[in-house]
Amino acid sequence: MKYLYYPGCTLKTTAKVFEDSIKEVSKILDISLVELNNWYCCQAIYTSLNDNPSLLLGAIRNLIETQKEDDKLVTACSACYNVLLRSQNTYFKDEKLRVRINAYLEEELKREIKIIHFFELLEEKIDVLNSLIKKRDYPPLAFYYGCLLTRPKGIALFSNDINPQRFENFFSQLGFLTIDFAFKTRCCGSYLTYTNEEIVKDCVDKIILSIKERVNNSCVILTTCPLCQFNLENYQKDYEVFYFTQFLLSLIKGE
């Protein structure tokens, strides 16, 4: 199956391992990801001021580029997913703003683009994945969802923003032990890492404490978000933190 793919800036640079693993896994699973033409930054964070159409232009332009070829777009970075989704949602809901956004554009966004998270493609291929996995003797997996795929309520990928279960189900079907922990969707501190490190430390500490409550020895933390990955890895040393595709790839390779 062929999909248009939006990598985003981070997967091309600091989260290169994430993109590399996505590409390898898709090759193995026969998913063809074709990079979107002329893509550029989604503008990193959804900004909500209603008097300024330029704040949503980055995301909308990427979607316009998409509509030239397809009505679906695959992405894997939690931040890109969130920004594309929310910008598109605002574009179609807020008519006044849409008119003003269109004034900047050569072309309108004519219909809603289905924004797909790479994980959704893997869910469809679970049986194939199951047959490919060589290594299963792993410590339990703690899936840290974070904010960007779970909120805002109503449009986010995961409909349960307190205790989502989709990743847990996915990995249990592959034969792994997963753990539920209280703070799996609690904020990691995000960009406060630059200005208020002590706050991010506090956020990460609490997430780790809530994992510790549920595991005896070791566990592996999995995430889909380059921000969460950075903060979780930087501010604690107890557990290893991987992107979920990076982890899957190592299972397939039997490493």
Binding site: C9, C77, T193, Y194
Partner: peptide, 22 residues
Amino acid sequence: DKIKREILIKSPQQLFIALQRK
């Protein structure tokens, strides 16, 4: 200048752009 250099270098692009946007 007050941002730690090691964080600036290692941190994801997205995070830094988000900070700038703020």
